[in-house]
Design a protein around this nucleic acid. Structure first.
Length: 611
RNA sequence: GGUCUCGUAGCUCAAUUGGAUAGAGCAUCUGACUACGGAUCAGAAGGUUUGGGGUUCGAAUCCCUACGAGACCGCCA
């Protein structure tokens, strides 16, 4: 018992020390370089010398570029590199050698450092996880409208939001996942009106349709009928713009919105019922995608809140009122325009609701940062929102961050729900499930799986392909999706990473007992490369968090499995007869398995043991 | 009209945030399985980083300009 505790204690201690050490290896180099300037050249030390990883085609692990510091050394680049290299080699035990090419000082780290690193960390299932930072971040994502089902663009949003939240949590932040449901407004009234007019009481039960799809069907029907009305009015001689206002359907929808705002019982009943259908549908899709939320906000609850803030701002003099009663903010000093905050009839606009919701969120959570995962079409909106909050003197304004991601476009252009030119989320997931099933069957490696396990596996791999496909791209960039070209399962893909995980798992299942190796053990290039990649996991997690970019994580995972597969192919593991070599490779396998699993988890991708 | 993104191999994406000879995957071609899992590995070919100018030791990255693509600028959400 005592031994067990001691062991556990030691393990934790080692873990802790490691984190300190990990923090400091690059910093030790930096400090060493600063010291070198002081002692060798007797000059001021450069404030923050930059250390980078050495490119593969050169010998070495870390590179210091001396060009910017020649003013300090007053020597030629080669000479400066040599001076500092010599100093570092004497000063730091883990520096085993160096070479200088032009102005690049390539520093070599000795094998013993890498072996020790592996010995200390191979068994940690939470390697790379930061200790608590005592900071709260709210990540709002998904935030759907309740008048139509989710499409591929929403999937990108959901996956991004989820992955960013997971990555931030792994970086030590306390994360609150929030979803602001856009459940009121003219859009839902359109679906409602169409259902009332053409629906004949159809329900998800009676039609067998998923609730969100049923409501979406009426949204499309509204648009069709509305366009027909416009055409008719236009052919009767009316101007198009006028017709768009005068069509009976749009008038009806506006009337419905008014009734809703006045609290008309029948309207509210239908609204609640149809929203309920949509929620049931969303629930299924969220569950299938594996995303979740800690807090739901409903716009119907928050849309009036902003008005209070608007009154505050008016009293403070941050806003001004026009004669017709409408309220505005002047943002010309910030390089923007005047912005309406409240209509002349006293009703609130979109941005007003966001002001209210921001306050509500902060009152409840007092978070340090508030991240909004919203498409880049709303860049302007969020710029304005943050400015307004600043003008109102809200401290939390500075924590607002718009994680702006690019739209998912089709070869034909933008997806439009109303026109039905969308890649439906549920359809796409089904399709990938089937593709995955087909490929898996062709490869025929799933002996002993039950029907249920097979179905789960197909789903995991299909989603692995989709999620990786969407997440490996820098969030900021727009994404092109061609429905005619199926998502790959080979190469730089989710299934490739999943495959490597399954492959390592297979090795480990038949692995003999193994243990750490002496630090004097020397490494082959494949081994060294893999350890080096594993070592960089911390950096990848940190950068992914800092940039809020799951793409960093995805690309790291790909590099890692590539390094492992290379080693796997070039060297034997289980059949290796030299015990120390076998032990080292088993440690490498174990650690790679852990890190791949964590990387996938941070991306929301499942890691199957067999596939 | 104004503002803001973006433009890298045929296609989809990287490039340690200003560093070395711009890297991967797909597609094409060539090679490696009586196997520790071939959804793999090795190799070939593919580039004036949209064009032009500038900044400096050094530019895909920063500045200017032209062209091209997209988004936003509503008392819509």
């Amino acid at each position: 018992m005592i031994r067990w505790y001691t062991k556990l204690y030691q393990k934790n201690l080692i873990h802790l020390l490691n984190r300190l050490l990990l923090m400091s290896i690059e910093q030790e180099l930096i400090q060493g370089i600063q010291k070198a300037f002081k002692e060798v050249y007797n000059t001021d030390t450069p404030a923050a010398p930059v250390i980078e990883q050495t490119k593969r085609e050169f010998v070495g692990d870390y590179t210091f570029v001396v060009f910017p510091y020649l003013k300090l050394s007053k020597k030629k680049p080669e000479q400066t590199g040599n001076d500092i290299g010599e100093f570092l080699k004497k000063e730091l035990a883990f520096v085993s050698g160096f070479n200088v090419i032009k102005g690049f000082l390539n520093i070599e780290i000795g094998d013993s450092f890498w072996v020790k690193f592996l010995n200390d960390n191979y068994a940690l299932s939470d390697f790379g996880k930061s200790s608590a930072k005592n900071k709260k971040i709210m990540v709002e994502y998904s935030s759907p409208n309740t008048n139509k089902p989710l499409h591929l663009g929403h999937i990108r949003n959901n996956l991004l939001g989820y992955a960013v939240a997971e990555i931030l949590a792994y970086n030590g932040y306390e994360v609150i996942k929030a979803n602001l449901i856009n459940d009121r407004g003219i859009h839902i009234c359109k679906s409602m009106l169409a259902w009332m007019k053409f629906g004949n009481g159809e329900t998800p039960q009676s039609s067998g349709m998923k609730g969100d799809h049923l409501v979406g069907k009426y949204y499309v029907e509204f648009d069709k009928a509305y366009k027909a009305e416009i055409d008719q009015l236009v052919s009767g001689g009316m101007e198009k713009e006028h017709a768009e206002q005068e069509a009976p359907l749009i008038k009806g929808a506006k009337e419905l919105l008014l009734k809703w705002e006045q609290g008309d019982a029948e309207t509210l009943r239908i609204w609640k019922m149809m929203n309920g259908w949509v929620y049931e549908g969303f629930e299924l899709t969220y569950k299938r995608l594996g995303v979740n939320f800690d807090k739901f906000y409903y716009e119907s609850n928050t849309y009036l809140l902003g008005k209070k803030a608007v009154q505050e701002g008016l009293q403070q003099g941050a806003f001004y009122q026009k004669e017709d009663g409408s309220i505005w903010i002047d943002l010309t000093a910030d390089g923007l325009d005047h912005k309406l905050l409240q209509r002349s009839d006293g009703t609130s606009v979109y941005i007003t609701q966001d002001i209210g919701t921001a306050q509500m969120k902060y009152d409840e959570y007092k978070m340090d940062r508030s991240v909004y995962v919203v498409g880049n079409e709303q860049d302007y909106h969020f710029k304005v929102l943050q400015l307004i909050l600043k003008h109102l003197g809200k401290v939390y304004a500075y924590g607002v961050y718009h994680l702006s991601y690019g739209m998912v476009d089709l070869p034909s252009g933008k997806m439009k729900s109303r026109e039905g030119t969308v890649v439906d989320a549920d359809d796409l997931l089904d399709e990938l499930h089937h593709t995955s099933e087909k490929i898996t069957k062709e490869l025929g490696k799933t002996e002993g799986f039950t029907q249920e396990q097979l179905s789960e596996l197909y789903e995991q791999i299909g989603q692995g392909a989709l999620k990786y496909f969407l997440l490996k791209v820098d969030p900021k960039k727009r994404l092109l999706f061609d429905p005619k070209e199926s998502i790959d399962f080979q190469g730089n893909t989710g299934p490739f990473i999943q495959y490597t995980y399954a492959r390592i798992s297979s090795v480990m299942r038949s692995a003999p007992a193994y243990t750490v190796v002496p630090e004097s053990h020397s490494l082959l290039s494949e081994e060294k490369e893999l350890i080096y990649t594993l070592y960089r996991f911390n950096e990848a997690v940190e950068l992914a968090g800092k940039e809020m970019s799951p793409a960093v994580m995805a690309n790291y995972a790909y590099e890692l499995v590539k390094a492992y597969n290379k080693l796997y192919h070039e060297l034997t593991i289980l059949k290796e007869t030299d015990e120390q070599k076998r032990n080292l490779r088993l440690m490498l396998s174990a650690m790679t398995r852990n890190v791949v699993k964590t990387s996938l988890r941070l991306l929301g991708i499942a890691a199957p043991e067999k596939m």
